[in-house]
Design a protein around this nucleic acid. Structure first.
Lengths: 149, 149
DNA sequence: GCAATATGTAATATTGTTTGTTACATGAAA
DNA sequence: TTTCATGTAACAAACAATATTACATATTGC
């Protein structure tokens, strides 16, 4: 199954934006992400509606983070993306007439729902600031490795 | 995203088989599932390798359950299907050179892994017998509704 | 033995979704 | 007024799941 990597991708983009002062163009971001500028614009458009980023047209324009990294969780980003489907597995029919299928669906939905609840809880636990901290920790470690005292 | 409904589908098939004495042909099962006999055979082939069903060729042949419904959990079926991918969401790159991506992946994987653990635990909690019981309960309720005393 | 029936499986086609691309309109700065 | 950037619709490509076709193999019953 083809995996939807928008959440992973947009987090990547946001952290890169956090490292830069001025606005960043969709073309630059597309370069980092090895994708198309239009894809970036499409994706970030959702985040803009939630007030997480702003965009400015024209010369010198581009995209800018406009949220408190400490206040935004991964779940907020997930929601801003339109709450994409979580599972690659699902029921054959959602409103089955067959009683066998009803019994199957009931148990499957129960299991999937509990798993989804856990996932959402974990996403709510992590903020963009957490990710950024981890990134900088990784940077430091790498620099130490390259330039030992 | 297109959802993989094999687990749901195969459970449906197994419960139907549990209701019948003799062997059932892939054609009959395909009729119930509104799919193609070859799809049924392909899917059940995996279960046969795990000793959950048997197949007999030729005249009077077909498929038969050969397991204790109480002993087989949904997780067993999931494994017999080859442990299909659980999530529709995933990381952009699994072995990123970019430290930003590394930080993102670490948190995402953590969250996904915990959710997957919960799902598997729930699948292990439910047996085919449980599903069958629920089905018969549903049957009774419907009959009562149709023929009130 | 031979016809009928069923599985086994490879090869191919179809379908549906996501992602990528093109094209062009709109807006802002130099 | 030229240049650069977003906004968006329309279209194309890529990909994975499912469906279909075709034929080999095995078993039963006559």
């Amino acid at each position: 199954m083809k995996r939807d990597s928008r959440l992973s991708g947009v987090l990547h983009v946001l952290l890169h934006m956090a490292e830069v002062e001025g606005p960043v163009t969709s073309e630059t971001l597309a370069g980092i992400m090895q994708t198309n500028p239009v894809v970036i614009r499409r994706t970030l458009a959702g985040l803009r509606e939630q007030g997480l980023v702003t965009s400015v047209k024209g010369h010198g324009g581009g995209w800018r983070l406009c949220c408190d990294l400490d206040a935004v969780t991964l779940h907020d980003i997930y929601v801003a993306l339109g709450e994409p489907v979580v599972f690659a597995m699902g029921n054959r029919t959602e409103s089955p007439g067959c009683l066998v299928e009803k019994a199957v669906n009931a148990h499957m939905n129960d299991a999937l729902q509990q798993a989804e609840a856990v996932l959402m809880a974990r996403l709510r636990d992590v903020t963009l600031a957490d990710l950024s901290r981890d990134f900088h920790r990784g940077l430091q470690q790498r620099d130490h490795a390259h330039c030992p005292s």
